[in-house]
């Protein structure tokens, strides 16, 4: 089962290597990993998806906590969360195909970001399956190039992570009661 972890780490050189190396060393399989800045300059945030059963997922969490630079790990797999992936897709679009491709893009609320004589580049943000869906329908026209960022995720609701009271919750599934849903 695919698990999604949000990992807060100290923003220091080499921390990404430590996290990646951990997954390699323990033979856990990373499906996607993104890393970026957060509201705090000293903290970076990673979203990692990995295929793991419940026990393995706990061990991944516990092992992440063993890295001295890891501040907080949240397994948000079973939590209400906003999950987004961004893709850029370059599609072959000659004169007659062009309008079809544009139509499909608009159905998926994707944007055209570059136009060339025989291709269009489409940018789409959304949950992974939405992007998979767009890719599926574009494929017959000829996908010339594609890149995806891998997902970033955030729990819904006003609760923000409490980095002071963490590590011990490695095995607990956080119960979130004040959830607000948005579109």
């Amino acid at each position: 089962m695919m698990n999604t972890f949000v990992v807060y780490v100290e923003n220091k050189p080499g921390v990404l290597t430590r996290v990646a190396s951990l997954f390699r060393r323990r033979a856990f399989n990373i499906d996607s990993l993104t890393v970026g800045r957060t509201e705090k300059p000293e903290v970076s945030r990673m979203t990692i998806t990995a295929d793991a059963d419940r026990d393995q997922a706990r061990r991944i969490e516990a092992n992440l906590y063993k890295l001295v630079n890891v501040l907080l790990v949240e397994n948000i797999t079973n939590q209400p969360a906003i999950v987004r992936d961004l893709a850029m897709i370059k599609v072959a679009a000659t004169h007659e195909a062009r309008s079809h491709v544009l139509e499909l893009a608009s159905v998926f609320r994707a944007r055209v970001v570059d136009v060339a004589p025989d291709s269009l580049t489409i940018e789409i943000t959304g949950a992974e399956d939405k992007i998979d869906g767009l890719l599926e329908v574009l494929r017959p026209y000829g996908v010339l190039e594609m890149v995806r960022t891998g997902i970033v995720a955030m729990r819904r609701g006003s609760k923000s992570p409490n980095m002071a009271a963490t590590a011990s919750n490695f095995a607990q599934v956080v119960a979130d009661d004040d959830v607000s849903y948005s579109v």
Binding site: D55, R58, R59, A62, K66
Partner: peptide, 17 residues
């Protein structure tokens, strides 16, 4: 003392970390 050792090789009924 190390949570990552729990259920690593042997599944246990109670872990006192």
């Amino acid at each position: 003392i190390d949570p990552a050792e729990i259920n690593k090789n042997v599944k246990v009924d109670v872990a006192l970390v």
